[in-house]
Structures are given as structure tokens and as C-alpha cells.
Design a binder for these strands. Structure first.
Lengths: 119, 119
DNA sequence: GTAAACTCCGTAGATAGGTACGGAGTCAAT
DNA sequence: ATTGACTCCGTACCTATCTACGGAGTTTAC
């Protein structure tokens, strides 16, 4: 089951402890047996995680099933977070590009404009 | 000193423990006294951190003083990391935008296209 | 029938970057 | 001289998301 989803066994146990999925029924030998509904929950978690939702948010999403407005608002919130992260990183990109450029044009290898600009 | 830089006292002690700055001289009373060189190191750390370097990388940068080529290569590495993060986030942005749009156009509030698409 | 490979459980450790606590000493002001 | 605010130190704790360990039971393959 773990392999099927590309997760470690420990990871699934962890999700279980965190209440993201319910403990599956365990027959006489004590081993977990996963039914379809848990498999689907795990797939849901994987997909939501890939979209950048935290595990807590995933739990929220799962509990919001049936309230589209709430889900939308969480989505919009995540969207604006993503957009501001993008903006931050783009600003950073410019600065670092400039700095490495000034390194490239530097003749004196023993004296670095990046280090200088940080001082 | 901490306030001057917008850092907590504990944070500075933490940097000291991590070897980012050297322990300042302590006179008879045991209190740290920060000279100019440590102040500058701390400013260096703050600026580098703001550019997205990790503390380990900051330590590297400080030890690379005098080798511009190495610094440049660390900068380029950071640059490509930033660029790939931007690309990832932009892909995510598109997906989440689509999802929230489909929510907005959804009439049945009790049935959410986002949840559906994650299932 | 036995050895390898798997699962169980609870707990501890890793990562990064701090933050908080508690008891003791110290400094500045009144 | 006492109060309040500050520092010292070591250690533990925090967030988030796992990952690893150890000892025991189980299942499977030969």
C-alpha cells in the first residue's frame, strides 16, 4: 500500500497518528488492511500536498467536504500566498543576478563584490 | 546590540553557538562586549539571510572571503534554486487559479469542484 | 521448519532556525 | 540598600514533516 502511493510505511502511520486518516480495521493478526476509502483519502492527501497545502490544511479540506465556499476561500488564500512568494523570489532573483554578474566582470579574484556588498 | 540589529538576544547567542560569529571578549563581569568587527559580521549575516542564504551558507560565504570565484558559484547555485522555485510556484499558481475559478462558477454549494479534482 | 522479509508499537532523532525557562549574577537608579 | 531591568548559562522546547530504532510477532518462500 505504501509503495503503491510512493510513501513510506512510517509516513502512513504518521498520517494515522495525526488523524488525517482513520485507523483501518485490523483483523486477528493485527496488520492494517486498507479499504478503498482509505486509499482514496491517501491519494487525496498526496494530491493536496503536491499543490502546496500543509497537512493541517489537508485536514481542513477533508473536513470541508460539502462546503464549496470555504474550500474556495482556502484556495484563494493559498493562491495569494503563492503569488507573494513568487514576487519575493523574483525580487531576490534580480538581486542575485546582479551580484553574480558583478562577480563575472570582476578581475581581482581575491576581492569579491558580493562579499563587499554584504558588508 | 540585539535591538540595534532587530534580533533577539537569544538569536545572537544562537549564532555564537553555531560558530557564525566568534565569542566576544568578556571583561570581569562576564557580559559580552561587541566590537566593530562582530557588529559587521552580524550585519553581514542579516543581509545574507535576507537574500535567502541559509545559515550554513552564510558561514561558507564568510569563510570564502577572498575567493570570488567560489562566491560566484554559490550565488549561481542559489540563483538556479530560486528560479526553479519560481517555476514550481507559477505552475502551482495556474492550477490553483483554475480550481478556484471553477469554484466561483459552481452553483451547487454543497458539491465542490476542488474537492472533486483532488479525489 | 527455518530464515528472510515484512508488520506491529512507542519513542526518539533529524532538519532549520530559532524561542523560552529558571536560577544566578550584575548594573543603574532611587 | 533595594528594586527592576538586564545579562549570564545550559537545556528544553517549538513548527512541520517525517525517518529511524529496537524488540517482538507474522507471513511467505524454499
Amino acid at each position: 500500500m505504501a509503495k503503491e502511493l510512493g510513501l513510506g510505511v512510517e509516513t502512513i502511520r504518521f498520517y494515522e497518528r495525526e488523524g488525517l486518516i482513520k485507523q483501518p480495521q485490523k483483523p486477528q493478526n493485527g496488520y492494517r488492511v486498507y479499504d478503498d476509502s482509505i486509499t482514496k483519502q491517501l491519494q487525496f492527501i498526496c494530491k493536496a500536498k503536491a499543490l502546496g497545502f500543509t497537512l493541517k490544511e489537508v485536514a481542513s479540506l477533508m473536513s470541508m467536504d460539502g462546503d464549496c465556499a470555504k474550500v474556495e476561500s482556502l484556495g484563494l488564500q493559498k493562491l495569494s500566498l503563492i503569488q507573494s512568494k513568487i514576487a519575493d523570489l523574483q525580487r531576490l532573483e534580480v538581486v542575485i543576478k546582479e551580484m553574480t554578474n558583478s562577480c563575472r566582470n570582476n578581475n581581482d579574484q581575491s576581492h569579491c563584490p558580493i562579499i563587499d556588498s554584504l558588508k
